[in-house]
């Protein structure tokens, strides 16, 4: 926070994007709870992964430690695996 005190515009931008991403997470939560079918809920998983990448990036800007970018790489890989696994599982379920 001490570093950011010299950059007021960036400080505002960071807090604004935190607010946007939080609202977006709640919107995803709404769709997750009321989604009429299972694919709707899996789509929300994809959205939440993107939002978490955004949150990590905003957190990097807040703390000034780009080490956390490793987490974003891992999430970007894992969500693809999760999508494929869900698609395969659903396909097997309709074949039976």
């Amino acid at each position: 926070m001490t570093i950011l005190a010299t950059y007021p515009v960036l400080n505002f931008a960071i807090h604004f994007s935190f607010a946007c991403l939080t609202i977006a997470l709640f919107a995803g939560l709404y769709r997750l709870l009321t989604g009429p079918s299972l694919p709707d809920r899996i789509v929300v998983m994809d959205l939440v992964a993107s939002l978490v990448i955004g949150l990590i990036i905003t957190y990097i800007m807040l703390t000034g430690k780009p080490v956390y970018l490793n987490v974003a790489v891992v999430i970007a890989l894992l969500v693809f695996m999760g999508n494929i696994a869900f698609a395969k599982y659903l396909k097997r379920r309709i074949e039976q």
Binding site: L10, A13, I14, F16, S17, C20, L21, I23, A24, L25, A27, G28, R31, V43, V44, L47, S50, L51, G54, I57, T58, M61
Partner: peptide, 15 residues
């Protein structure tokens, strides 16, 4: 940063 966050918000509103 702000435009990226706004795009993500728009995606969530679309969902």
């Amino acid at each position: 940063l702000i435009s990226g966050a706004l795009f993500m918000l728009v995606a969530a509103i679309g969902v």
